[in-house]
Every structure is written in structure tokens, then in C-alpha cells.
């Protein structure tokens, strides 16, 4: 179990984390959701013992993360690609295995297993510098797992990756979850948290704004989505629990109006002017969701 008890961290005049408390259960996939600069990475750094909290305590299975035994149970994939470009994927894995004290045979076996897990067996002997961003991310993740840790901390593991690698990383996280590992997953994509995490803590400016399951958060703080459609005659706003259905209906109308316009007067721009312009789903983008969480939090604070 990971317990953060009112931890705070300041860098000069900036408060990165401000009295944050969390309890993450064994086997749980916990999402730490927040925009850039929210304090997610600082929280991770304090969780793994890289930074000491100015106040508060961090415990992992009751132990201090500064202790070697506790650290041996942690696997960390930092946000930056913490691998060696001039080494092959296999060499990276074997090296990180060696600094965790694995013997030669175990290192080799774990390297093979993890290359298989991240889908890079056929590129095992290639230097990482030739890999795509997504492939490097997968190696970065594999290096965090080489010593078979009970707790895995993934700091924005999908930052800057292609959809294929992103999907592969999701699959890996699910497999890790199936293996019973505790996973802390930081992201600023609500979609990722929704797909992977059993619970999510929303953090901004070092404060925990909300803590619940994704569904619970949306239900409690998100409400229905608002679809905004721009038409020639003006903007239409539709509040709905099924935003995709509204968008599809608007698209069909546009298609229908377009055909009608072309049959009446070929090339008439009037038909185009009637084209509905779906602008997106208000309330489901992470930024809007986070903004809403913040507003809600302030409202709660004022109410209390």
C-alpha cells in the first residue's frame, strides 16, 4: 500500500505540492491526473524517495522509500526517456537489471520476456537511437519492469507517442494490472485515465482537487456534455449525455443538406453555408474537465 500523508514540497517561492494525501491500495491502477506543472512529477519523485517532502510522510508497504529494500520493490519509468541511446534495447534492459542486482541468467531471461512484452524482440539488438519515439517509450517502460517490481510508477508514459505505441502501452499496463502489480499512472489525458485507472486523483497547483473513480468523477463533477454546432444561422448548443449521437446526427444533416444543394443548383455555396460545424465535445476534453473540477472544488470550498 502506498500512503502519502499531507506531503508538501516547495522550490523557492513555488509550492509544487501542497499538503497532498493519498492512499493507494495494492493491485490498484491509480491515475494522477493534472495539467503540466500540476505537481504530478514532484509527487512521483517524493513517492520514490528522490525528493524529501518538506513536510508529511511517504510510506510504501509501511517502509520509507529511501530504504534500499523498499526501492527494490519500485519500478519507475520517468517522464523523460531515461535510457541510453547508444546502447541496444537488450543492453539497456540488461544494464538496468544489473544495477538492481539481478544475476546474469535472470537478466537475460527478464530482458527476453520484456522485449516480448513491449513488442520489440525483433529490434532487440538495434541501438535505441534509431528507434521511433513510441518504441523508445516502450523500452523506457520495459526498463522499469526488469527487476519485477511490485509497484510501478509511470510518469506520463504516452507523452509524444504514435497511436500504435500508445495502444501497446495501454495493453502493457493492463497486463501489469492482471499480474497484480500496483500502478501509479500520471497523465493529463482524461481518456487514458478512463481506460486504465480504477481511481483517479485530480491534481493542480499541488492540490488534490478530487479523488474518485473516473466514472464517479464524471458523474459527480462532469454532468452532461455540451455539443456546440455552428451553423450559418448561428451557433447551436446541445446538452446531452450522448454527445457522439448528437455529432453523428449533425453530420448526417450536413450530408443531407449538401446533396440537396447540389441537386438544386450545382456549385451553390448556400448548401455549404448550411453545413453544420461540430466543434467538439465540451466537458470531455481533459483541460475542460480539469477546469470544471477546479471550479467545482472552489464551489465546494465556498459551500463548506
Amino acid at each position: 500500500m502506498i500512503t502519502l500523508d499531507t506531503i508538501s514540497k516547495r522550490f523557492g517561492s513555488i509550492t509544487a505540492v501542497d499538503g497532498l494525501s493519498l492512499a493507494i491500495e495494492p493491485g490498484e491502477v491509480f491515475g494522477l491526473l493534472g495539467p503540466n506543472g500540476a505537481g504530478k512529477s514532484t509527487t512521483i519523485a517524493m513517492t520514490v524517495g528522490l525528493l524529501s517532502p518538506d513536510s508529511g510522510t511517504v510510506r510504501i508497504d509501511g517502509g520509507d522509500p529511501v530504504d534500499a529494500a523498499v526501492r527494490a520493490s519500485l519500478g519507475v519509468a520517468p517522464q523523460s526517456l531515461a535510457i541510453y541511446d547508444e546502447m541496444t534495447a537488450r543492453e539497456n534492459l540488461v544494464f538496468f537489471g544489473s544495477i538492481y542486482g539481478l544475476d546474469g541468467a535472470t537478466r537475460t531471461r527478464r530482458a527476453d520476456e520484456l522485449l516480448e512484452l513491449v513488442g520489440l524482440t525483433d529490434r532487440a539488438r538495434d541501438r535505441v537511437k534509431g528507434f521511433s519515439g513510441g518504441m523508445k517509450r516502450r523500452v523506457n517502460l520495459a526498463c522499469a519492469l526488469v527487476h519485477d517490481p511490485r509497484v510501478v510508477l509511470l510518469d506520463e508514459p504516452t507523452a509524444g507517442v504514435d497511436p500504435q505505441s500508445r495502444h501497446a502501452i495501454f495493453e502493457i499496463v493492463r497486463e501489469l494490472q492482471d499480474q497484480g502489480r500496483t500502478i501509479v499512472y500520471t497523465t493529463h489525458y482524461m481518456e487514458e485515465a478512463q481506460k486504465l485507472c480504477s481511481r483517479v486523483g485530480v491534481i493542480d497547483k499541488g492540490n488534490l482537487l478530487a479523488l474518485d473513480s473516473v466514472d464517479g468523477l464524471i458523474c459527480e463533477h462532469g454532468g452532461e456534455s455540451v455539443v456546440r454546432i455552428e451553423r450559418a444561422e448561428g451557433e447551436e448548443r446541445v446538452q446531452t449525455a450522448e454527445p457522439l449521437a448528437v455529432l453523428q446526427r449533425a453530420a448526417r444533416e450536413r450530408e443531407h443538406d449538401g446533396r440537396a444543394g447540389r441537386s438544386a443548383r450545382s456549385g451553390d455555396s448556400l448548401s455549404e453555408s448550411h453545413r453544420p460545424e461540430p466543434q467538439g465535445l465540451s466537458g470531455t476534453s481533459p483541460e475542460r474537465a480539469l477546469g470544471r473540477e477546479q471550479r467545482h472544488s472552489r464551489a465546494c470550498a465556498r459551500g463548506s
Partner: peptide, 12 residues
């Protein structure tokens, strides 16, 4: 690059 950070999370 962050590799030092990763090394420092190891039990040493």
C-alpha cells in the same frame, strides 16, 4: 536526460 534520476531510484 533523466537517466541519472532513474539510476537514483535503484536500491543503491
Amino acid at each position: 536526460r533523466g537517466t541519472l534520476t532513474r539510476l537514483r531510484t535503484a536500491p543503491m
